[in-house]
């Protein structure tokens, strides 16, 4: 898998970020395993330390297994003043987990996100690549039940 992804991008050091993104997205648990990083290092000819540097620098990358759906809740000022803390509490309460954790069924992971550029519909969250704005308790419940049904 890792080899296929690298070949699709070409063996070039500058493709490291897109390659790691693709590897992570191709994985059900949305993370980069130690073996992934070792393979990338070997196949691209980049020292492990440099691959690790990139994998720990960007907040999209996770070295720990995560859920099927990653819920990224914006906690920047425009969302905070429009109720982001309530949104965070609602998600935590409904899913029964804390920020940074994954539900035991492996379905959801809760994360903070910096601004999603969705400030005109604050408070906002990004769930597996999709934006959700104007969040309130009702909307959160229905989003989660929709995702569960998928």
């Amino acid at each position: 898998m890792v080899e296929e992804i690298i070949n699709s991008h070409g063996i070039a050091e500058d493709k490291l970020v897109p390659i790691l993104l693709d590897i992570q997205n191709s994985n059900d648990k949305h993370y980069l395993s130690e073996d992934d990083l070792k393979q990338v290092s070997r196949l691209l000819g980049i020292p492990e330390s440099r691959v690790y540097s990139v994998a720990t620098f960007y907040s999209f990358f996770s070295l720990q297994p995560r859920g099927k759906y990653i819920i990224q809740i914006c906690d920047n000022a425009p969302c905070i003043v429009n109720g982001a803390y309530n949104v965070i509490d609602d998600f935590r309460h409904i899913l029964g987990i804390d920020m940074g954790q994954t539900t035991p069924d492996g379905l959801f992971t809760l994360e903070y996100s910096s601004c999603l550029g969705c400030c005109s519909h604050a408070p906002a969250a990004r769930i597996s690549g999709e934006l959700y704005g104007d969040l309130d308790s009702e909307k959160i419940k229905s989003i989660l039940s929709d995702l569960r049904r998928r």
Binding site: D14, K15, L16, P18, V54, S59
Partner: peptide, 25 residues
């Protein structure tokens, strides 16, 4: 077209350039 990976600092021009080169920003 290249995608970032979650780093505010990459809006700084040289951080962005470093990121394009495949490094940390």
């Amino acid at each position: 077209v290249r995608s970032g990976a979650g780093a505010y600092i990459c809006g700084e021009e040289f951080a962005l350039i470093e990121s394009l080169e495949g490094k940390s920003g």
